[in-house]
């Protein structure tokens, strides 16, 4: 009985409820002294701080810097990853030649590159973009490589029998086939691009959300740290929703669970 009634309440309501319970618990904990506000701050304080930063306009300069860095590293990383992925997947020789080196570079934790990039590219946005690119590039590269290598050979043969040249094969079969793989990596690579540039800002910059967080941390301002995190989470969620819509449009030909049941008639 209770199970069937529970099913009638939309999941979104339960999700909001969970968030509310957690936040209220946090707030209550801070009020009663179970959680020291100095270490844990308070949701109401964090919210007030976010509001102050947004309404006061102080946040925009930093948000713009972070978004610009993340966008640039995303664009450069995706283009590089797609081009190299295609090239190395289609050319056996190049693929085999680069294989060990790509593994070596990819095995490196990117954070250790941050100081090097600071030296090479300075405190401005380009050291953060470089860090973001090293993350995005490999995610997209491996997915593109996989997507092109694993394209269904029957589809390729069918297109060739229908008269496809090598160029037409790339356009009609390989790119669309690789797109599925590339898209499945976009969510991850956008998230990682933002993480990478924030880490870059955190380690040395004069602008950006990461800079705000590190400044707040420097004066033990936990409210400021949480406010920066909240804003960052909001940005990542908003961008994720956008990618979702784009993906749903571009991959509209793909079977979704709801379609599978529909089947068809012969």
């Amino acid at each position: 009985m209770s199970a069937s009634r529970r099913n009638q309440v939309p999941m979104a309501v339960w999700q909001v409820l969970l968030g509310a319970v957690l936040l209220l618990g946090w707030e209550a904990g801070a009020k009663t002294g179970v959680l020291q506000p100095f270490f844990f701050s308070r949701p109401s304080d964090v919210l007030a701080r976010v509001w102050k930063m947004v309404a006061g306009g102080g946040i925009w300069e930093h948000l713009a810097a972070t978004v610009a860095e993340a966008s640039l590293s995303f664009l450069i990383g995706v283009s590089g990853g797609v081009v190299f992925g295609f090239l190395l997947a289609r050319n056996r020789f190049l693929g085999d030649l680069f294989d060990p080196y790509i593994r070596i570079v990819n095995a490196l934790p990117r954070v250790v590159l941050a100081p090097i990039f600071l030296l090479w590219f300075g405190l401005g946005i380009w050291s953060k973009v470089a860090l973001g690119v090293t993350v995005v590039f490999f995610i997209v590269f491996f997915n593109t490589f996989q997507g092109v290598r694993e394209v269904d050979p029957v589809m390729v043969n069918n297109a060739r029998m229908l008269g496809a040249s090598e160029r037409q094969l790339i356009r009609h079969v390989l790119i669309p086939s690789a797109l599925t793989w590339i898209f499945s990596s976009l969510h991850i690579s956008i998230g990682f691009a933002i993480i990478a540039v924030v880490v870059g800002e955190y380690l040395g910059s004069s602008r950006g959300i990461g800079y705000l967080i590190s400044q707040a941390e420097g004066v033990f301002d936990t409210t400021g740290v949480f406010a920066g995190m909240a804003i960052l989470a909001g940005v990542v969620l908003a961008v994720g929703a956008l990618v979702d819509r784009l993906e749903r449009y571009l991959l509209r030909w793909k079977a979704r669970d709801s379609d599978a049941a529909r089947g068809g008639v012969s």
Binding site: N158, G163, S165, V173, W253
Partner: peptide, 23 residues
């Protein structure tokens, strides 16, 4: 072919038009 060789990202019309388009 024995297996499905249609391009899943093209509609029925798009798939039928593939040959003429490629040629």
């Amino acid at each position: 072919f024995q297996q499905d060789a249609l391009l899943p990202w093209k509609t029925v019309r798009g798939n039928i038009l593939l040959g003429p388009e490629l040629r």
